[in-house]
Design a protein around this nucleic acid. Structure first.
Lengths: 139, 139
DNA sequence: CTAGTTGCAAAGAGTTTGCATGGCG
DNA sequence: CGCCATGCAAACTCTTTGCAACTAG
């Protein structure tokens, strides 16, 4: 959050600082700021925070559809989405189930496959741009 | 896809039947149907397929933001976010590493911990609302 | 003073809906 | 023939952008 120091930035940063463990929808942030910061300003500030790597934004702008394969044999697998090419692939059912059990066992956390999207680099994109896969866990 | 049998339904089903392993954005479906099926019809048909459980739709209509928890001792662990209480917890480093290796081994997909958020129900919320955890993996 | 920042309103992108027309059975 | 399905355009929702007014340094 470079640039000038303004009241609006203060308020937003304050709010975020007091809620480090939650995630927010835009409308929640805006209403929490109680009309003190304009909507478009919040959008702009949030975007700059994302660009600075301080905040992560989940978004799929448009919907994505995929078919359930072979009936209802497996309706619970995870999805992997490549951050470079954008393509999605399925994580094998048995592997998904295995991971789900792992997480349940270690954290007593019940994973929701439907909501969860795993981001990363697919095989093709790793080959094409090894330098990206090097620094993959940075902003 | 109950109701009347129409040319539009045929075309859409044909297209999907020939592409069972891919996922699509709306515009791809519409353009693949080459103007033969109106956009709103495709929306309607896709929605009914989703309701029938034949297709899954990924969507986040609106963006969701969350903050990177800085200064973490271990920079390679996954985050679990409870969809009910909103709280976030860390998945143990060693477990995270294990999962990452699993996914790399099975799908040659390099998971990005920084970008990935796992959604589901935390232990507390599972206890409080068992009915939610029952039906969690359905459409 | 000057450049970055803000807020309004308008523009965009994606999706849904109202309504009259047209097609299935 | 009656009802459902379709297609167009308008409505909606969320987000971005243009622009004039404002403000930090």
């Amino acid at each position: 959050m470079e640039g000038y120091h303004t009241d609006q930035k203060d308020r937003l940063l304050d709010f975020l600082g007091q809620n480090t463990t939650r995630q927010f929808k835009m409308e929640e942030i805006v209403s929490a700021l109680d009309g003190k910061v304009g909507k478009s300003t919040v959008y702009r500030l949030m975007r700059s925070l994302v660009e600075e790597g301080r905040v992560r934004r989940f978004e799929l702008g448009r919907a994505i559809y995929y078919q359930y394969l072979s009936g209802a044999s497996c309706d619970s697998h995870l999805h992997l989405k490549c951050t470079v090419c954008g393509r999605m692939q399925h994580l094998d059912c048995s592997v998904s189930t295995f991971l789900r059990r792992q997480i349940l066992a270690t954290n007593r956390f019940q994973l929701d496959d439907r909501l969860t999207l795993l981001f990363g680099l697919c095989a093709d994109c790793r080959e094409k741009s090894p330098e990206i896969s090097e620094r993959k866990s940075h902003a």
